[in-house]
Amino acid sequence: MKKYTDTGKKDTRSGFGDGLTELGKKNKDVVALCADLTGSLKMDEFKENHPDRFFQIGIAEANMIGIAAGMTIGGKIPFTGTFANFSTGRVYDQIRQSVAYSGKNVKICASHAGITLGEDGATHQILEDLGLMKMLPGMTVINTCDYNQTKAATIAIADFEGPVYLRFGRPKVANFTPADQNFQIGKAVQLQEGTDVTIIATGHLVWEALQAAETLNESGITADVINIHTIKPLDDEAILKSVKKTGCVVTAEEHNFLGGLGESVARLLSTHHPAPQEFIATQDTFGESGTPEQLMDKYGLNASAIVNATKKVIARK
């Protein structure tokens, strides 16, 4: 088994902030917009370095999306920053018409996604955003797993022409992917090689999947662990190749099982290579207040849940 080391817990949103800082230095067309959450999104440094390219919109997310769409018309590459809830559900129609349908080069960057937002509770814990965004024609949807990957993704999407939804989170989590990684949109990352099961994870669940694979290995079960950072377009080839080898799959995400990564994988498999699948995801429910760890445990979004699901899916082969 490959060994992955947590080089020190860091929040993915800081990866976004640091990526944006780097972009500010190297790409003069990059502009940043924020709806009164500059500190939460870690956009302070970009703001200080480039006051002329930073736009404080106020608590007006619909206007922020529209302004971002308009800025692309003058050749700018706008990065909007607010919580995932206010980046998607609140402004769905604005994104749909002014960004996606209009084909505008807006990067919608969303922090505090999922249940790990924690104590603020369900009003802020969106578990439906991946589904909302992936249903929009032409939208690229990315959910990164750690600080390094989020930073790399932030930099990479500036060079990609088209609307992107980049999702990341609030809590400090293991930082284990390489600092110098080459982030390729739409390309799955194979983290472990195995033959008994394919574990496909995204976001904060990738680290949990690696922990689960280690536990499974102790009982003689080897797993292909795949980090799907790009949910749309999905890396069909990597997934099919793996599932053809292992014959079953567990998907893991911090999202409702309706509309998320698991559904995308199920659609792919059902049309190309039907196989038993178990879903690690929330079960069509809202979240609640609690610490991130408590919530991940209560809603079954951790390594032990992945281990149990793996045993179940292997039995269904």
Binding site: G66, G70, M71, K76, S98
Partner: peptide
């Protein structure tokens, strides 16, 4: 209701 926002963006880009 979206046109003024878009126009502001285009104006800022100008």
């Amino acid at each position: 209701g979206q046109g003024i926002s878009v126009s502001i963006g285009a104006a800022l880009a100008k």
